[in-house]
Nucleic acid binder design. Structure first.
Length: 423
RNA sequence: GGAGAGGUGGCCGAGUGGUCGAAGGCGAUUGACUCGAAAUCAAUUGGGCGGCUUGCCGUCCCGUGGGUUCAAAUCCCACCUUCUCCGCCA
C-alpha cells in the first residue's frame, strides 16, 4: 500500500510507473475522494470540538444543580449531524482503502523498464549447462522409471497437478529441505520458524495476496482461513501491528512449509511432471530491515538463495525482473533460474524481492529509530531459499546418467543416509 | 463444544457515566547532587489522522466492531483472544 499523502503530491510519478507496470489503475477518482474526505473530516472534527465543550458545560451545570435542558438539546442536534457526516466519511474511507489496496508497489529506480520477461536482464550466471552424450530425459520419465514419482496416484488421490513421491524420491525431498534449512540457520544466521500453514484474511491482506488475488488461493469454506501460497505470508506478518526497536533489525527468519496455489491462470502450462503443482514444498527466507539497508539486504538474500544451487553444483543464472514483469508488492525482484536439460532452458526456482514499506504499511509494522523520534515503517524482503520440488527436478535432470540412474549431489549424501545414487 | 474469570500506556496496576489520554508504581530519558557510580530529588516519557502561522491547535484510540447518552475506559449487544475446569482428541 502506498501513502495517500505521497500519492497526492506525486501523482504524475504514480501514473508513470503504473504505465510501466502495464497497470491501468486510474488514480484520479482516488484523489477526488481524498479531497472530499479531508473536507468532511475538518467539518466533523469542528462539530466534535463543539460537542465536547457543550457536554463539559452540561456536566458543570448539573453538578451545580442548574438546569441544562436547552444545551443538551443543542448538543443532541449537533450529535445527529456528526453521525451523518461520519457515516459518509466511513463509506469514503472504505472506498479509498479498497483502491489503495489495489495499487501495485512503486518500482525502485534501479529496475529496468520493460514490457515482459523478455526484457529481464541477466545479472549473473553460475556454471555451464552440462553437455550430455545422450538425449537427457525429463524428470517425469526419470522419476517414473525409478519408481519414485507417481503422477497417476497424485491425480487419483487429489487432482491433476498433485504428485506422490515414494521411497528415495520422498527421502530426497526431505533431504533437500533439511539441507536448505541447515544452511540458512547455521551459516546465514536465519531464525528457523514453523508458522501456521493456514492464515486469516487480515494476514493475507498484509502481504498483498488479498483482496486482489483471491482466485489464486485455496479458501476454507467454513472459516476465515486460507492455505498459504508461500511462507512469506505468515513470516512477514510475524510483527504485524508492532513497533520494533531499531536494535532488533535486521531480523532474518526462514521456514519450510508446503505452499498451496490454485494456478488459476496457468491452464495449459507445464501440465506434465511436477514443475507446477497445487501443493509444493518451499524453504522461504524473510528479512525485516530498516529502509537504509534494505537493498544491501536484498543482495545478500539473493546470494543466500544462490548458494543452495552452488553447493548442489547445479548451473543457474539470476535475472532482474523488469517493471512489466514484477510482482504486485515488490519494488525490486531477482529471479534465480535453474538449468533444466530436458527443456534446454532456465526455469525459475527462486524469487527474491524487496517490498520496501509496501507490506509494512498494510501490516502496520514499524520501528523506532535509535535516536528516538517517530516510528517509521520497516522494509520487508522475501525470497525462496529455495523451491524444494523444483530443486528435486533440477537434481534429477542435471545429475541423470545414460542408464537412467541419478547421482546424488555430494552435498546431499549425508542427508540421504549415505545413499549416493538413485537407480 | 460446555461452565467460569480476565483483556487498561514499554511493563505492573487503579479507575462502574461528567475537565480521564487515564491515579500510583516500575522501567526509560534528561537535569541537579557526585571525582565517577549508586542512592536521592526534579522534569519528561504512547499512537493515528486533519489543519495551519512547524509549533501549536483540534480530533480519535482503554481487545475489536456496533449501540445507548448532551457526555462512555465505565452501561448494553456481537465478535476475537487469554487463563481455569469439564468434554473430545493427534
Amino acid at each position: 500500500m502506498l501513502d495517500i499523502r505521497w500519492i497526492r503530491s506525486n501523482a504524475d510519478e504514480v501514473k508513470a510507473y503504473l504505465a510501466n507496470r502495464n497497470n491501468d489503475f486510474d488514480i484520479e477518482p482516488l484523489l477526488a475522494l481524498d479531497e472530499e474526505k479531508r473536507k468532511l473530516l475538518s467539518e466533523t472534527e469542528e462539530l466534535k470540538a463543539k460537542r465536547n465543550e457543550g457536554s463539559r458545560k452540561v456536566g458543570m451545570a448539573k453538578s451545580k444543580g442548574e438546569d441544562a435542558v436547552e444545551l443538551m438539546e443543542e448538543m443532541r442536534v449537533i450529535g445527529d449531524r456528526i453521525r451523518d457526516i461520519d457515516s459518509t466519511l466511513a463509506e469514503i474511507e472504505e472506498k479509498m482503502n479498497n483502491m489503495l489496496l489495489s495499487i501495485p508497489n512503486r518500482p525502485h529506480e534501479s529496475v529496468p523498464v520493460g514490457k515482459d520477461e523478455n526484457d529481464n536482464p541477466v545479472v549473473r550466471r553460475w556454471g555451464e549447462p552440462k553437455s550430455f552424450a545422450f538425449e537427457p530425459k525429463a524428470h517425469w520419465d526419470i522419476g517414473e522409471a525409478a519408481g519414485i514419482m507417481d503422477f497417476e496416484k497424485g491425480a487419483a488421490l487429489a487432482q491433476s497437478r498433485f504428485t506422490v513421491l515414494k521411497g528415495v524420491g520422498a527421502r530426497l525431498e526431505r533431504a533437500l529441505l533439511n539441507f536448505m534449512l541447515d544452511l540458512h540457520t547455521e551459516k546465514h544466521g536465519y531464525l528457523e520458524v514453523q508458522p501456521p500453514f493456514m492464515v486469516n484474511s487480515k494476514t493475507m491482506q498484509g502481504t498483498g495476496q488479498l483482496p486482489k488475488f483471491a482466485d489464486d488461493l485455496y479458501k476454507c469454506e467454513n472459516d476465515d482461513l486460507w492455505l498459504i501460497p508461500t511462507a512469506e505470508v505468515p513470516l512477514t506478518n510475524l510483527f504485524a501491528g508492532e513497533i520494533l526497536e531499531e536494535e532488533q533489525l535486521p531480523f532474518y527468519c526462514t521456514a519450510y512449509t508446503p505452499c498451496f496455489r490454485r494456478e488459476a491462470g496457468a491452464y495449459g502450462r507445464d501440465v506434465r511432471g511436477m514443475l507446477r503443482q497445487h501443493q509444493f514444498d518451499k524453504v522461504e527466507m524473510v528479512k525485516i530491515s530498516t529502509p537504509e539497508r534494505s537493498y544491501e539486504e536484498l543482495e545478500m538474500l539473493t546470494d543466500n538463495a544462490e548458494e543452495v544451487l552452488r553447493l548442489l553444483e547445479i548451473p543457474h543464472r539470476t535475472v532482474c525482473l523488469c517493471t512489466g514483469d514484477m510482482g504486485f508488492g515488490s519494488s525490486k525482484t531477482y529471479d534465480i533460474e535453474v538449468w533444466l536439460p530436458s527443456q534446454d532452458k532456465y526455469r525459475e526456482i527462486s524469487s527474491c524481492s524487496n517490498c520496501e514499506d509496501f507490506q509494512a504499511r498494510r501490516m502496520n509494522t514499524r520501528y523506532r529509530p535509535k535516536g528516538g523520534g517517530k516510528p517509521q515503517f520497516v522494509h520487508t524482503l522475501n525470497g525462496s531459499g529455495i523451491a524444494v520440488g523444483r530443486t528435486l527436478i533440477a537434481v534429477l535432470e542435471n545429475y541423470q546418467r545414460e542408464d537412467g540412474s541419478v547421482e546424488i549431489p555430494k552435498a546431499l549424501v549425508s542427508y540421504m543416509g549415505g545413499v549416493e545414487e538413485i537407480r
